[in-house]
């Protein structure tokens, strides 16, 4: 049999609904899809002074997708908007073995996914949605400053 992909921490995170749902009046919303299986993560976020003050995710997908979205949502609150794109790159680098360090310690539960190439996207689509949402807040703020 293959090594256990679904450890208890992943199963637990997949069931965590703490930041699941929608935010009222978000500053940005972004959705990422996995065309292979139809999984979808939507992230709403609010930001102030260049930092994420609140976020929520709506995730339709497998356990890995749900677990990654839940872990990311817990981690990202309070972080600078500018780090979202780096988180996205770090998650992919970690899964692809280019880096031994997960983008944040809690994501180390995804270590067994590294050897299962076909499931990497399940983990990364939440990071894609967050990066797009953060970029759209930053673009809107820059646009607003430009108009002043």
């Amino acid at each position: 049999m293959t090594q256990s992909l679904y450890n208890e921490a992943i199963i637990e995170a997949g069931k965590d609904k703490t930041r699941a749902g929608r935010l009222p009046n978000p500053d940005a919303t972004a959705t990422a899809d996995n065309p292979l299986c139809g999984d979808r993560v939507t992230i709403d976020l609010r930001a102030e002074n260049g930092a994420i003050t609140d976020l929520a995710h709506t995730t339709r997908g497998c356990l890995l997708t749900k677990a990654a979205a839940a872990l990311l949502a817990s981690h990202a609150r309070g972080r600078p908007l500018a780090t979202a794109r780096a988180l996205q790159a770090a998650a992919r680098a970690y899964l692809e073995g280019e880096s031994n360090d997960p983008p944040f310690p809690e994501l180390a539960v995804m270590a067994p996914v590294k050897t299962v190439k076909s499931r990497h996207d399940c983990v990364t689509i939440a990071f894609d949605a967050l990066a797009d949402a953060a970029a759209s807040v930053r673009a809107a703020k820059e646009g607003a400053q430009g108009e002043e």
Binding site: M1, T2, L5, L36, C37, L63, T65, V116
Partner: peptide, 29 residues
């Protein structure tokens, strides 16, 4: 339980190769 979780676990637990997904039939899904 998502289809991919079913497929991954049946492989992991019993060595069963199943397919999960939309099977290139999105209108039917």
């Amino acid at each position: 339980i998502h289809a991919h979780d079913i497929c991954q676990l049946t492989d992991q637990l019993e060595g069963v190769a199943l397919r999960g997904g939309h099977h290139c039939c999105q209108p039917l899904m």
